[in-house]
Amino acid sequence: MSRYDRYVLSRLLLFFGFFALILVAVFWINRAVVLFDRLIGDGQSLLVFLEFSALALPNLIRMILPMAVFAAAVYVTNRMQGDSEITVMQATGTSPWRLARPPLVFGLLAALMMSVLTHLLLPASISQLSAREAEVAQSISARLLSEGTFLHPVAGVTFYIGRIDPDSTLNDIFLSDRRDSDQSVTYTAERAYLLRDGERANLVMVNGMAQLQDNHEHTLSTTRFSDFSYDISALLPSREPGARSLREVPTIELLTRGSDIARDEGFNPGKLAEELHLRFARALICVAVALIGFSTLMLGGFSRFGVWRQALLAFVLVILLEVLRGLVSGPVLADARLWPLVYLPTFAGLAVAALFLQIAARPPALRLRRQTRVRETAA
């Protein structure tokens, strides 16, 4: 690799890190606000919030990494054209194809990073995040032990605790169960205790009253009790044993046991094929967007007004590639044998970049035609 290649590659990596850091910070803050409100509001500690944020980072980085690659390629190319560095290189006889070597290497490095992310880090983080979410959902103290707040653990159930004593005694209990359309039950009690028995959780209410309302007969009956046990296990959403998201499945397992996974875990074969090949396509798209960002700006020569038209064209092309990815998703989901369509946006982007580099190279035939037109105009 020449000194010029190392120089351009270092600048691309530098601004890639800068744009990636900015984009991750912006997206992370937007999501962290919602996550913080949900976890802290449910009684979780700050440590749990930081753990969930860290586990969500690989998926966040996966989304912004191609954008950072594209932004770095456009910015560095624009700066080099503004500083006449590319003009000097072209004046020495260097072709746009030769100048595209650093962006190509940069795209390959980004593709390598994306591969590690999608094949290793992302499935592991999603699996761990799902396990931690299940633990939090099973935590009674996080879901139900919140005093002075009307909670809705599941649809049709309202739970309220007036005060919680230091010895975990619950005071001034209100529990409304409206899940049955035929009747609804409301429980009130002076005190209550939470008891765990393996996977079961019971709320033992003391000195209370149960009000049963018949929605068909429009009658209300009341029953007073000195103690009453209410099973609240159903109020805590549980994860079915063995159930997992397709994004949790490691790539090596998708490659070697794809048919078994589709049969045993009930996954759609088209969805399984799309997920597998999309992990490879996400890495390759980094190469395409890097070359599009570079080649599109190479179409314009030096101008005092900059290359904003070419930059806008590059941005539109990247959007069109994302639209194309959405269009090919439907056929692949319907028929797993159409999995090559997943790579269509990548190859389309590479073809557009090659076309723009060829135009920027101005082959001799085009030069001859241009010189002929100039002579005819002068005559």
Rank of each mutant, 00 (worst) to 15 (best):
E217F: 09
S229E: 05
T256Y: 08
L272K: 02
L278N: 15
P237S: 09
E248K: 15
V249L: 13
R224I: 05
M209H: 07
R263E: 02
P250W: 15
Q213V: 11
A210I: 06
S245A: 15
N202G: 00
I232N: 12
D260C: 00
G208Y: 03
E248P: 09
R244T: 14
F267D: 01
R247Y: 07
L255S: 02
P241W: 10
L255A: 12
S259P: 12
E248Q: 15
G258I: 01
M205D: 02
R257A: 10
N202V: 06
E253P: 00
A273G: 05
E217I: 04
Y230M: 02
S233G: 11
R247S: 15
G208F: 01
S226W: 01
S238L: 13
V249M: 07
E217P: 01
Q213N: 10
T251W: 06
P237Y: 09
N215M: 14
R244W: 12
G270W: 06
R239I: 09
T256D: 12
T256G: 08
R257P: 01
A262Q: 07
A243D: 13
E253I: 01
T222R: 13
D231C: 08
T256S: 11
L272V: 07
S233L: 05
R244P: 04
F267K: 09
D260F: 01
L212W: 02
H218N: 11
K271Q: 08
L220Y: 08
T223Y: 04
E240S: 08
F225T: 11
G208E: 02
A234C: 00
S238P: 03
G208Q: 01
I261D: 00
L235T: 02
L246D: 06
Q213F: 12
F225G: 11
L278Q: 14
M209F: 08
R224T: 12
N207C: 03
E274G: 01
P237Q: 10
G266H: 09
S233V: 11
P241E: 14
A234K: 10
S238C: 07
L212C: 00
P250V: 15
D214K: 12
V249I: 14
